[in-house]
């Protein structure tokens, strides 16, 4: 070796950079790392905690996979997805909650007392119906303007949750959201609920995979690449965008219903814009136009959120912020060196 250490370092760096840009390697490392992390946390904290973590993962995974259909496959950078999540959660809360606990009732509150499985389809359909109305307007916009209008939707949704007190109880939130019951089997245990969420996650992943690997999915990608050319080749792109937007929102509504039932308490703070931005980060971090990437991203995110509580030197009140800092740093690094995300196939 007669090359100086400096050039060796430089060439190593260059090689590292190419490795980083190439698919495969980094995706594998990320997978191994995240899953190993999950196993370690499980062993350390016990299975009870892992079950909770798993449930949160399922809900976030449904959200990120569904958002990827819109952002990654169709190229519509929506930051308002949390609104549909909220509609699902509030649908579940309003329809199933037993509000008789309310002693000092200042406003008349609707009370339905439906069972979980009657409310869940309503959550999905409500999210889809709102998406249909909103999407018909959003279809006029593209690119950066699209980000702005979807941002507007997230803000409006949050304010509706906060201000429509007759329905949502505003900042007080809704307690005692029902847990599901199948016949005599009451899904009250945490493990039971995890299984239920996992089944729904499987269904969502299955539907998503079916759609993106169909001819329809290919047209969505063409719309992402050049909508006008897709039109010239005979596709009424507004209908395609609307269809995937509504399907995606319905999945988010489903995630919302599960979330409401899981936490048994719903208030507007779960649906702030920040959550929506975190969700977009997960999708980009995991990889655009990759379902596997979204699952990976959601898992990494959940581990960040929950796992950081156990970092010994980090005071617990900083956990929330530290998670956002880590996510932010990861996002910047990824955009610099790997714009398609960990497992992605598409660059923003």
């Amino acid at each position: 070796m007669n090359s100086s250490p400096a050039t060796t370092n430089a060439s190593l760096m260059a090689r590292g950079m190419t490795a980083l840009r190439e698919k495969g390697d980094i995706e594998l490392y990320a997978n191994v790392f995240v899953i190993a992390w999950a196993v370690i946390i499980t062993l350390w904290q016990g299975t009870g905690f892992a079950v909770t973590l798993g449930t949160v993962f399922c809900i976030w995974a449904i959200l990120s996979v569904s958002l990827n259909l819109v952002v990654g496959y169709t190229g519509l950078l929506s930051v308002g997805h949390i609104g549909f999540f909220g509609i699902g959660a509030y649908g579940m809360a309003i329809l199933t909650s037993d509000t008789s606990y309310e002693l000092l009732r200042t406003e008349s509150i609707a009370q339905f007392g439906w069972p979980f499985f009657a409310a869940l389809p309503v959550c999905v359909i409500a999210a889809g119906a709102v998406a249909l109305a909103v999407g018909a307007v959003f279809n006029r916009f593209r690119d950066d303007i699209y980000v702005l209008v979807s941002f507007g939707f997230a803000i409006i949704a949050f304010n509706v949750f906060l201000s429509w007190r007759g329905l949502t109880r505003g900042a007080y939130g809704i307690r005692d959201v029902a847990r599901p019951k199948i016949g005599s089997w009451e899904v009250s245990g945490e493990l039971d609920f995890l299984i239920l969420c996992a089944v729904f996650l499987l269904i969502v992943v299955g539907i998503s995979w079916f759609l993106v690997s169909s001819s329809f999915g290919r047209v969505l990608k063409a719309i992402r690449e050049d909508e006008q050319v897709a039109q010239v080749f005979g596709y009424r792109t507004t209908f395609y965008k609307l269809a995937i937007w509504v399907i995606s929102a319905m999945m988010a509504g489903l995630a919302g219903g599960l979330f409401g039932s899981f936490t048994t308490f719903v208030d507007p703070n779960s649906f702030i814009l920040l959550e929506s931005m975190l969700l977009v980060s997960i999708v980009i971090l995991g990889g655009l136009a990759s379902i596997r990437g979204s699952l990976l991203g959601a898992l990494a995110f959940v581990l960040l959120e929950e796992g950081m509580r156990f970092i010994p030197f980090l005071p617990s009140e900083f956990v929330g912020q530290a998670r956002q800092v880590v996510l932010g740093v990861l996002l910047v690094l990824l955009m610099l060196f790997r714009p398609q995300g960990l497992a992605g196939r598409y660059k923003l």
């Binding site: 290919r218 990608k221 690449e225 050049d226 897709a230 660059k347």
Partner: peptide
């Protein structure tokens, strides 16, 4: 104006 981030194959199939 191709569909840049799609394969050659998909550019025709679409």
């Amino acid at each position: 104006r191709l569909f840049d981030q799609m394969t050659v194959w998909d550019n025709l199939m679409v």
